[in-house]
């Protein structure tokens, strides 16, 4: 029996008084594109960040590729993993941030080779060759030696995608990848993401781009107030939402 790449079971997370996630459960299957939509504060970004442990969970469990994240079970009790073990678990995911977060003191190429060389111990020449290939794939081979400050927002985000792909993750996480971009630059990033989806990468995308979701997503999940309200195919959730809350959200954004 196949198991999901990501299994989220009854995950809760509070920030002080504010309950960001309320016993959320979700499966993400290999090769699928899952889009999470919802208003700000709905918990969608928090959920994403729990998967690569940038945010820690209060209760429940997340299994990535069958491995429990952040904790190990021993003698009927849960023990936290060490920071080194958590860092290793992060290697299975790649993340693309809303604000790109490229390293400003490194060129585009160096941004991409930083992880493979420093963390995975790959040889510099090999990493460089693969990085050039990734840059070609995102359409920025000419900008290999450019610094992030010399690139437009859309170009920076594409480099960020290449940087995440360089680590050869099994799952790509996108946190509102186009929200910080000028409208005319959104398209180039979405194209890269579409190509990535077509190539079979498992992707979990928090986004407001409903057009992208409709076109590319296998599953769409609508969250509100820390809980999943509705999930299903893009056609169902976006075209014929069952829940009243989903309907009012969609009518507000369309």
């Amino acid at each position: 029996m196949t198991r999901p790449i990501v299994a989220i079971r009854s995950v809760s997370k509070a920030f002080g008084e504010f309950q960001a996630l309320k016993r959320v459960s979700l499966d993400v299957w290999a090769g699928e594109v899952l889009c999470v939509i919802g208003a700000s504060g709905s918990g969608k970004t928090t959920l994403l960040r729990c998967i690569n442990q940038l945010t820690s969970i209060d209760s429940g469990g997340i299994w990535l590729d069958g491995e429990l994240l952040g904790l190990r079970e021993e003698g009927g009790r849960l023990h936290r993993l060490t920071p080194q073990q958590i860092a290793r678990q992060r290697l299975k995911t790649g993340m693309v941030f809303q604000r790109f977060n490229l390293f400003p003191h490194r060129t585009a190429l160096e941004n991409i080779t930083e992880g493979p060389v420093q963390v995975q111990g790959r040889k510099r020449e090999d990493a460089r060759a693969e990085a050039m290939e990734l840059l070609r794939r995102v359409g920025l081979a000419a900008k290999a030696d450019a610094y992030p400050a010399e690139l437009s927002g859309g170009q920076q985000q594409r480099v960020a995608i290449a940087r995440a792909l360089a680590m050869k993750p099994m799952l790509m996480l996108f946190d509102e990848p186009t929200s910080a971009l000028d409208p005319e630059l959104v398209g180039e990033v979405l194209s890269v993401m579409k190509e990535l989806a077509r190539s079979g990468m498992t992707m979990m995308v928090v986004t407001h781009e409903l057009g992208f979701a409709r076109e590319v997503a296998d599953t769409v999940v609508y969250m509100d107030h820390g809980a999943i309200v509705e999930s299903g195919t893009a056609a169902d959730v976006l075209g014929a939402p069952r829940e009243a809350r989903t309907q009012s959200f969609l009518s507000a954004v369309i």
Partner: peptide
């Protein structure tokens, strides 16, 4: 330094000291 820098470093598997 922007907090996002540290998160990006963590996201590619870097430990705190690195």
């Amino acid at each position: 330094v922007d907090a996002g820098q540290y998160e990006a470093a963590q996201a590619i598997g870097m430990g705190r000291l690195r």
